[in-house]
Write a protein that binds this DNA or RNA. Structure first.
Lengths: 344, 344
DNA sequence: TGTGGCGATGACAGCGCTGTCAACAAATTG
DNA sequence: CAATTTGTTGACAGCGCTGTCATCGCCACA
């Protein structure tokens, strides 16, 4: 077996393959990217050489030369949170089969880190960027706008999108949550929340508005730290102390709801008999819990998918943005066993 | 304000900055990468131009020229599973401050997809690769070995690492789990498992061995599909039908354990009074549940961190691998309320 | 047999950046 | 004051690939 010359990094290059196959570099490139342009004869010879050298194309060189990277950037606030897992899956399900590479960065729920993540991302020349939320810094907005690539903000709706926007009205969802509990006859309500996540605040706004309209006092117990199951338990403890008469809780998310429910069980507070609990997001754990937790379902997978669809359309088409710059995917109240009518 | 010429993609290049600042391109490059080499005067002029143009360096061109990408590749089987969230955090915590970029790909628990993820990754010329598990395909192994970059397999131990290996003995952990339940006096044991994840099988092996050594029948109920809380409930139902005399369950992971526990509560089976439940991984939900679930804690964050440390050492040093190619980080049994002595 | 058309292949330049070395001025030394 | 060192800056080539155009043979048709 012939020993081809290797480049510095020790890996075979297009030229190495070309030498071995006795063709020009361009031909190798074509075999790999538009095989139909090359005769079957040469194609085979080239592919044999490719296998022989275990050649892997250098994406960076390719991107530099063609100014197409095949990359889509996604920035989420957390990898651990199941909410974003579904979202990412929606994106992957469309983009990966379409030959795109999804590059993810984590902002850790901090606008500052999000900004640097966006800059980093832009340096990789993605063909589009998908963002979580609408709270980007001025700097970040400017960089994004200048880049000219499609930008999709997701998870919430805004009047002033950077480019395109897919999501749901977080405050409407909060409003809907409160409404549900009011309809069940509850008058002593409390929300528990970890407004570390900006969207939590918007949900609280809706909640507050609904209660105020009904003449019910909108009580809230919250701590500004990352949400967790355990935090749900802690907040429930605090709530019981401060507002012992509460009969129904709206939780900022399902983790808090589960934690609150566990704490109720620990303290012998019957759910839903003595206390109704409503979650948010409708993660798997809400529906599987005992008692099953009512929740507001958010279209996470669908948001990811819709974003991917739009991007594919733009990238494949002439780069034209679609007519509708904003899509409201709504939410859905899922009634389960943890919320029940108040028989006071 | 002067209007600099822009390149095709519409973004400013190093040359545009150089033109505006009336210096050469090399100087701009130096200002950005080794500012101390440039006089304060020029440095300021250049930085002004950089800001003015909102210049973002093209990483691909930089990587191509310097053959250093500053990228670390990580391939995990799932983004949704909390297990890998902790792991990724461990990696990020070290690599990001060190100026590296962590690129993640998802294999969806499928060796075939993992292989293509590895190939894709290699095309991006990462400076090191971190893999989950040790079950890579032959092709993938070969490509990895040829690449010459540091490769770290994690989460389990293997006799034949591709390069380096950090993890714990999954079968020892399974053994330890069984041992714990035996010590508590249980003799009617059952494992429930979703061996979709290869490591689950190794845990079962250890479990089986421990029981066989003690002359206890190693019963197992399993379905080969992705694990979830709900699956835990389903498997518990199946177990109760097939092995109603069971008094203690070893669950392949904490999600299954939680689902099994919910199902017990649904059916009025007292935990731990009538049924002991032991989880695996010690995710947050295990400790926060009611009753709190005993579990085998795995050093996920530490594995990520250790992998990052080793890579940093190699990349910064001369590229030399450390003496010890394999690190066993062990596991720890966390006793909580869901497992109790059997008073039969 | 001559001419046009077509598909297949190659030569060449250049994407945006960095490594290397040369050039030069200022500072230091004997 | 000449010789040398030190510190800054620039010119140039090239990383590995692809877009573009030129070239070459071959066939069909007249």
């Amino acid at each position: 077996m012939k020993m081809p010359k290797k480049n510095i990094s020790g890996r075979a290059t297009l030229n190495d393959v070309a030498t071995i196959a006795h063709v020009s570099a361009v031909t190798v490139s074509r075999v790999l990217r538009r095989p139909e342009m090359v005769s079957a004869d040469l194609r085979e010879r080239v592919l044999k050489a490719v296998r022989e050298l275990a050649y892997i194309p250098n994406q960076m060189a390719s991107a530099l030369a063609s100014s197409r990277t095949g990359r889509i950037g996604v920035i989420v606030p957390s990898f651990t949170n199941g909410v974003f897992g579904d979202f990412l899956r929606g994106i992957h399900d469309l983009m990966v089969p379409a030959g795109f590479q999804v590059v993810m960065l984590n902002s850790n729920y901090m606008p500052g880190l999000e900004e640097s993540a966006i800059i980093t991302m832009l340096g990789q020349f993605p063909e589009a960027i998908i963002l979580t939320g609408t709270g980007q810094t001025k700097q970040a907005r400017r960089a994004l706008e200048q880049s000219g690539i499609p930008v999709i903000q997701t998870f919430e709706l805004t009047n002033r999108p950077i480019d395109m926007n897919i999501g749901l009205s977080q405050s409407d969802a909060g409003y809907g949550a409160a409404e549900h509990l009011l309809k069940l006859g509850h008058r002593k309500l409390c929300a528990i929340s970890a407004p570390f996540d900006a969207r939590s605040l918007k949900r609280l706004e809706g909640y507050r508005q609904a209660l105020t309209e009904s003449g019910v006092e909108p009580r809230i117990v919250s701590v500004d730290e990352p949400s967790s199951i355990w935090l749900g338990s802690r907040l429930l403890v605090e709530m019981v102390e401060r507002f012992p008469e509460t009969t129904a809780i709206f939780c900022g998310n399902d983790n808090l709801a589960l934690g609150a429910m566990f704490e109720c069980q620990r303290r012998g507070i019957a759910v839903p008999g003595r206390m109704s609990i409503l979650g948010f997001n409708d993660l798997e754990l809400a529906g599987s819990a005992y008692p099953a937790i009512s929740s507001i379902a958010t279209p996470r997978y669908e948001m990811g998918r819709a974003a991917a669809e739009i991007i594919l359309e733009i990238v494949r088409g002439s780069g034209k943005r679609p007519e509708r710059r904003q899509i409201d995917l709504g939410f859905k109240l899922i009634e389960r066993d943890s919320t029940a009518a108040w028989r006071g």
